[in-house]
């Protein structure tokens, strides 16, 4: 028996979960970017009269901020999908224990949950890309498709390590800590809203080392058509290591938690 068919047996479960919640998700993923782009891109951006050379090649602040907002959204959704839902499945509802009483194995359960998180992130990213198109956020159709695909990687790069962390937690108090001390600072200071060059040199380098910056820069280069292969490759490798390493850690953490 190979792993793939067993993992796929969780497909109907997650489809059922999605069918129950998709309406709220779609409205949310449609409204959130619209509100953000109006507030930050149009209204705030109206005051930003920077030279395009200071905006990493963007023609306007709107074009600059939209890719950053998208990568930031992918990160936030990843946190959302792999924190409380994991605690629920392990501790509150014990649905994972129900799954584990069947032929499914721990790795199947973890991989299926992470796949669902990526699908959620992907569907929100797709809506975001479509909603932003009329604002002239994407330089080309292939660029827009690339932006969408990059979100799958960004999403998993955050979802997998956060999943691993969530699987080790005994109670939900630890989530508040990472939301406040990790997610919010990353969202605000990883180059989504302003060019990293505006930071003092030391902080700039710290920001360049954060995982969200990799996602922001990758998304922005693809959106603006300012693609640089060496930089892109470095970002992809960085995010890929987070995704693969995080998945491995996540399976291991869940194994330790459930199999006692």
């Amino acid at each position: 028996m190979t792993s793939l068919p067993l993992t796929a047996r969780l497909f109907d479960y997650w489809v059922t979960v999605y069918r129950r919640t998709w309406r709220g998700t779609v409205i949310n993923s449609f409204l959130t970017p619209l509100l953000y782009v109006v507030a930050m891109g149009v209204l705030l951006g109206g005051f930003v009269k920077a030279d395009p050379s200071h905006l990493e090649g963007a023609g306007s602040y709107l074009q600059f901020v939209v890719p950053g907002l998208l990568a930031g959204q992918s990160m936030q959704l990843a946190f959302g999908e792999t924190t409380y839902p994991v605690m629920g499945a392990v501790k509150w509802h014990k649905t994972y224990y129900g799954m584990l009483a069947t032929p499914l194995r721990v790795a199947d359960i973890a991989l299926a949950h992470l796949s669902f998180a990526v699908v959620r992130i992907a569907s929100s990213a797709a809506v975001f890309v479509l909603v932003m198109a009329p604002f002239g956020a994407w330089s080309s159709v292939p660029g827009a498709i690339g932006v969408f695909l990059i979100q799958l990687l960004v999403g998993l790069a955050f979802a997998a390590p956060v999943y691993a962390y969530a699987a080790t937690l005994k109670d939900e108090g630890g989530f508040t800590v990472i939301f406040r001390l990790l997610m919010m600072p990353l969202f605000l200071f990883s180059g989504a809203f302003f060019p990293l060059g505006n930071l003092p040199p030391v902080l700039e380098w710290v920001a360049r080392l954060t995982p969200l910056w990799q996602g922001v820069d990758l998304t922005r280069m693809c959106a603006l058509g300012t693609w640089s292969w060496p930089a892109a490759l470095a970002h992809v490798v960085y995010l890929g290591v987070c995704a693969v390493g995080g998945t491995w850690l996540g399976i291991r953490a869940l194994e330790r938690r459930l199999v006692r």
Binding site: V17, R20, H93, K94, T95, G98, A101, T102
Partner: peptide, 16 residues
Amino acid sequence: RARLGVCPQEDSLDPE
């Protein structure tokens, strides 16, 4: 496990 039926002490149903 493919041939077992298990009724655990604590319910593990999906409440939603």
